[in-house]
Simulated scan of single mutants.
Amino acid sequence: MKNENLVRSIVSSFKPYQGEINPDELAKRLGLTAEEILPLHANENLFIEKDWIIERVKEAITTLDFRSYPDPETIEARNVIADHFGIESSEIVLGNGADEVLDILAKVFIDPGCETIILEPTFGIYGMCTLLLNGKPKGVLLNENFSPNVNAMLEALTPKTRMIFVCSPNNPTGNQYSKKDIKRLVEESGCIVAVDEAYADFADYTLIKWIHEYENLIVIRSFSKSFGIAGLRIGFAATNSALAETIRKTVFPYNVNKLAQKMIPILTKYWDYLSQKISEIKKEREFLYNQLIRNGNLKPYPSQTNFMLVKVVKPNFTAKSLQSRLLDKGILVRDRSGLPLLDNCLRITLAPRPVNQRLLECIDEIFGEEPV
Rank of each mutant, 00 (worst) to 15 (best):
V219S: 12
H212L: 14
G330S: 15
E100S: 11
L298T: 03
L232K: 12
V312N: 14
I293D: 01
E35V: 08
I366T: 05
D204T: 00
P253C: 05
T268Q: 08
K209S: 07
L341F: 08
K269Y: 08
R162W: 01
K209L: 06
L327N: 10
G296D: 03
R67C: 06
I229S: 00
T63W: 01
L267W: 04
E20G: 11
L359V: 12
I92S: 07
I87L: 06
L119R: 08
G338A: 02
I117W: 00
L327H: 10
E144Q: 09
I110K: 06
S303F: 04
A238Q: 14
V80P: 10
D335Y: 06
S222E: 02
C167H: 14
T305Y: 03
E144W: 06
V312L: 06
T206V: 13
G135F: 00
I220S: 02
E361C: 07
R353Y: 05
F109K: 06
D201N: 12
R78F: 01
A77P: 14
F123D: 00
M1I: 11
E370A: 05
S178I: 04
W52K: 12
E197Q: 15
G368I: 08
I234C: 12
S89M: 06
A34T: 12
Y205F: 11
V150T: 09
S13N: 13
S222G: 09
H41W: 08
L132H: 11
S9R: 11
A200T: 14
S9T: 12
A42K: 09
L185F: 08
F202Q: 10
L32S: 02
K262P: 04
N170K: 09
T74S: 08
I234A: 02
N344A: 03
G97P: 09
S279F: 05
E25H: 05
R248V: 13
V57C: 06
A238S: 13
E76M: 07
V7S: 00
K180Q: 13
Q276L: 09
F109C: 01
I104Y: 03
F317I: 05
I208E: 07
E4G: 01
T63S: 14
P169S: 00
S324G: 05
E213T: 15
E91W: 03
I234F: 03
E370L: 05
E49I: 06
S324H: 07
G174C: 15
K209R: 13
I37Y: 09
A351D: 09
R334A: 08
Y205T: 12
H41N: 14
